[in-house]
Each structure stands twice: as C-alpha cells, then as structure tokens.
Design a protein around this nucleic acid. Sequence first.
DNA 1: TTGAGGATTCTC
DNA 2: AGAATCCTCAAA
Length: 195
Amino acid sequence: MIPGALRELQSLPRLRLQRCFFLRPAEVVAPELLNKILVVGICTGRIVEVEAYRQHDPASHSFRGRTQRNAAMFAPGGHLYVYFTYGMHHCANVVTGVAGDGQAVLLRAVVPLAGLDVLRPRRPAARRDADLANGPGKLCQAFALDRSFDGGDMCSPAAPVWIGADGTAPPVEPRVTERIGIRVGVDLPWRWLAP
DNA sequence: TTGAGGATTCTC
DNA sequence: AGAATCCTCAAA
C-alpha cells in the first residue's frame, strides 16, 4: 500500500447524511455542509464554500417557478440539482427543504481528499491541487458532474453521489459574505466559507 | 422562432 | 478586462 492511497482510504467518510438533514431551509443547511464530504465514486472532497438559494429570492433559478431546467430544485431535500451555464460549465447543488420548496445549496468549493489521480487529468488547467475544485465549475469538472446527475437522490443507498460525514464539525465561525456572480439579490449574506 | 443573458473560468 | 460557448426561457 503506497502512503497516498492509505491516507485516502483513511479519509473515507463513514456516515451518509440522511434525508432529515436536508429537509430544512437552505440557509440553515448551507453552513452545516461546511466540512462535510462530497463523495462521487472513489473521489471525495471536503466542502469548504457554499451558497444558499431560495424560491422567493431573485437570484435563484427557482424564482420564476418550476421549469424543465430547474425541476430538480423542487424535489425533496437530499436530491441533486446540476445545471449547465455559460455554454461550458456545470454547477452542482444540494436540494433542501420539502418537496415544492425550490431551495438549494450551491457547492462552490471542495478540498480534494481521495481520488486525486482521477481528478487531476480532468482539470488540465489546474497547476496546483488547490485549484482542482476551488470553484463551482471547477468542482463539477473535477468530479465529472453533469446534467446526467441532475435529479439524483443522494439519500438512496445506491447513489453514486452523496454527502458524508467523518466526524469533523462545521466551523464554529465560518466566514460569511454576500453571494457572488449574481446581479440581483446581492444583499443576502448567504455565502459561507470554512476558514 | 428569436434573442438576451447566465449561481464561470481562463488568459491576456 | 474580455473571450469562450450554448442552453434555457420568455416573448413575439
């Protein structure tokens, strides 16, 4: 066993977050997702940056109601909402609240933990491992998340994508800022970062 | 059918 | 600061 692989095995999360965790408002779930672990097959990453979006929020894709594109946002908490934007990037969200709420938490950055050898070739522009998944589009490119994952249920035992916990608590004092990359709803302090 | 804009990233 | 690049949705 080579050291890197052993380290990756030891970092595997043991607990899969259950439905009840996600059946709460996005701005409550979001900061609690910090330090949790995104699992996609053998690849994992610690969540370090998130943003919350709700239906009566002009910045949210669900603001104007359900469409074909955002339908997954209206699923029960614990599902995935993955969308395509700017003609080249995907962004991944964790749906929150109960069915019909139209809420989600955008996964903006993770620190890769396992599967680095799989992630690196997918991110040729990343010169350092720190740049593999430090952005919502980069994260999806590294973890190969696209619209084929949209609507998936992360609470299903067979789910290829899920959120795990390894016992690390969310940061006691996360950095909180306004959301970025949006033109409306810029006032809400709904972006959280692990220090 | 059309067109404007986008929860971004990379390079100059 | 600007380009890349194409899907989505609302309006006509």
